[in-house]
Design a binder for these strands. Structure first.
Lengths: 221, 221
DNA sequence: GCGGAATTTTCGCCTAGATTCGATCCGACA
DNA sequence: TGTCGGATCGAATCTAGGCGAAAATTCCGC
């Protein structure tokens, strides 16, 4: 069972932009269909989980027949694979970009930004990220395996964020980094379980509130 | 598709202890088999999700043949239904009991205890609770519906806990209860996604650490 | 031991879902 | 207008899994 991405035939000349660019913008006509399928899959995976989602559902949502999917993907697993990839890459890049854009600000501010971006990616941006976060834990080992490195890298990135803040004295010295990161990402990730996707503006507020809780706690001073 | 529990025929006389007591201890001989099935199901549901789990897997883990399951349950859904029920009931009762046992202590201590008990229920006690927490979000609406009241009740219970603490001044007045509860339960619930079930003693430590984070935050004083 | 109830197995039915594959449809291009 | 290849359809295949029910087996009180 090959999990690799289906080899695109022909495609543009040699000076092409490169099929699916890292940013995920579809290029050629057919890349668009491919993308539609992935988006439908991500949405359904997020809502129902991987195995509860049927190819016919995906096809239906993409306004296509089930068989046609095989023109783009080798298998259901191959779809999942790419959904997972895009999900983490998306949020990872988004957070990195946000911090880069922010330039030279306090560590607390940086963490606050990371929180906001992570939440936005999870709740607004795309279904890829939320699908990833939500279904990853229930996948069979051989599927998780391939994505573990990326997850680790993302975790490390957050650890660095907290570590720098602690070095700079903005986080107390007695706080352990890894448990902290687990705690923070956990509460953020859990939002996919309850957040109602009705009012998009709330994400910013939610992020701010989370930042305050994490930094200042709830106890009276 | 009836979701009700299969009617046990005959069973003991009228002065019996009542089949499956609320505490979940099996009584009659056959209740034991029934329980074994439920435990296997809970474990598998937690690991793989509901629809990825097959009746044959459940049966296998319960050292029984798949067909036999229908002697105890009307359908796969009926199993799920009871797993969910036991899960939440279990943790709810455990938390209530722990707080009752604690008697008259500070609100912070009460919340700390609730955290510890919730975590223990999730990570040590039974697969029922973790299965519930983990798969609930991906179930089709008609399945979630039946369990919503219980979930709400549990949430309310935590709200009360925080509210009392705030009234007593142990939590700052500007902290909003509902977001706080969501935040706290979120970070606790997320532990099922990563906690390695190897070292059981860590739960207590984990609980304490969580309590500290929530109350005092990470910022330097 | 016996008889009937409780349990469990055996054996498949039957549907749904993944995958396959040849037939078609359509737009670009000569 | 005819041809070509990419894109899609639709029917068929194959298999796993939920479900059921009769047959086989175990239990137990008398």
């Amino acid at each position: 069972m090959p999990i690799r991405r289906k080899i695109r035939k022909s495609s543009a000349s040699e000076d092409d932009i490169g099929a699916t660019a890292t940013n995920g913008t579809p290029v050629s006509k057919s890349e668009k269909s491919r993308d539609t399928i992935l988006e439908a899959a991500a949405k359904l995976f997020r809502q129902q989980g991987y195995s509860a989602t049927t190819l016919r559902q995906i096809a239906g949502m993409a306004k296509i027949k089930a068989g046609s999917i095989y023109y783009y993907f080798d298998s259901k697993e191959a779809i999942l694979d790419e959904v997972l990839d895009r999900g983490l890459h998306g949020i990872f890049e988004a957070v990195k970009a946000a911090l880069k854009r922010a330039g030279d600000v306090s560590h607390r501010r940086r963490i606050g930004l990371a929180i906001e971006t992570h939440l936005a990616g999870l709740l607004e941006a795309s279904d890829f990220t939320s699908a990833n976060i939500r279904i990853y834990g229930q996948l069979p080992e051989h599927l998780k395996k391939r994505h573990r490195p990326l997850r680790r890298a993302y975790a490390k990135y957050w650890d660095r964020l907290f570590l720098d803040a602690r070095r700079a004295g903005e986080i107390r010295a007695d706080i352990e980094i890894v448990p902290l990161r687990i705690f923070v990402l956990g509460s953020l990730n859990w939002t996919v379980e309850w957040f109602s996707f009705s009012r998009k503006e709330d994400v910013r507020k939610l992020a701010r509130r989370t930042e305050l809780l994490i930094f200042d706690g709830v106890a009276r001073r």
